[in-house]
Design a protein around this nucleic acid. Sequence first.
DNA 1: TTGTGTGAATCCCTTCACAGCG
DNA 2: CGCTGTGAAGGGATTCACACAA
Lengths: 211, 211
Amino acid sequence: MTRRVPASTARRLSHYLRSLEDLESEGGETVSSEELAERGQTTAAQVRKDLSHFGSFGKRGLGYRVDELREQLRQILGVDRVWRVALIGAGRIGSALFEYPAFESRGYECVAIVDSDPKKVGTRWGGLTIRPPEELESLIAGLGVELVILAVPAQAAQDIATRAVNAGVKGILNFAPIRLKVVAAVAVEDVNLVMQLEALSFSITQLGSEA
Amino acid sequence: MTRRVPASTARRLSHYLRSLEDLESEGGETVSSEELAERGQTTAAQVRKDLSHFGSFGKRGLGYRVDELREQLRQILGVDRVWRVALIGAGRIGSALFEYPAFESRGYECVAIVDSDPKKVGTRWGGLTIRPPEELESLIAGLGVELVILAVPAQAAQDIATRAVNAGVKGILNFAPIRLKVVAAVAVEDVNLVMQLEALSFSITQLGSEA
DNA sequence: TTGTGTGAATCCCTTCACAGCG
DNA sequence: CGCTGTGAAGGGATTCACACAA
């Protein structure tokens, strides 16, 4: 149980959790670091190191109990509870996300939708009414929103992000193609499809031009 | 000009390219590594190191010519040409991507759409007719598709990916929440929103539970 | 014997610092 | 003098290898 967790750990933990859920539905009782590694495209040593940052969950000679480890991982990842989310920007991306089944089923509850288009404000999505941007702060404070999904154009993103953070938001899933400047206490995850497409064409181009 | 490019380089190069485009529209002629670093949330040394892997594009005492470096970066990233893309899965995500303006404007041309739902097959999106999955291989080969956007359910993803690779695809933008197994010569970029949401809740949970 | 937990060794990436060119 | 390009140093993260517990 050492502290000092590498930044890349979260993605792997998330993957282990998914594997454990699969194993459980397959009826597995225990699992070894070896088997988790195989499913997660990593190494057994990496699995053990990742877990060791948070405690000792396995039994030597036996492996890990699937249900126990799954529960531990849910706690570590902070998904053993419901997160209240506001969706900012009710465009294509926003709508795709809003109807994304894994979203609600995994404990992320959308409690507010905001859009700056007067034609959209007032219309209903599911059980929610789209609100205007002026209400951003009061919605966040009033509904106890902790996460924001930022799906607005690039020029509006930084301003909205700053306001959301000042209103008390703890994390931002950012779809705008800019690097947001926020205080260190706020977590930001960027989803940047252009960047990922360019990473693809880069890999292909570079792989192709090797001896 | 050393080879051996760190894996994380592509994302930064993509960001530099975006910054250079901004600079150009602002009328800047030259730019220093310092200034690029500021816009890219990195350090001047990192910028110079990143670029040095591919050549010497700057002038000492002066910096980099904006238009020159932009052109070089477009070549390095492989975005100085049009990539032919097939969209597999015409659901919510597929439709959001298909109408994503940056997609076409940045040189990614969607030349085929495939979906397994018989009700969707035959309908038209833009100028394209949705094709059934049986035609996957012939579409890829016939149209010279190099990139595939995989927006299908998890259970179907690996099979489709394997078939696409066998048919000649070079890169996959994967929205299915699984780790695809493909030969090393094929590039894969994963877009996994559940994982990113969990990375957010992880950061918040861990940040919160520190001293 | 099996498979975890973990210090030590290794590897890779970033940062430093400066020689050298414009 | 200013700023790049780059070997060398430094720091993190991964991998190794083994003591030890079940």
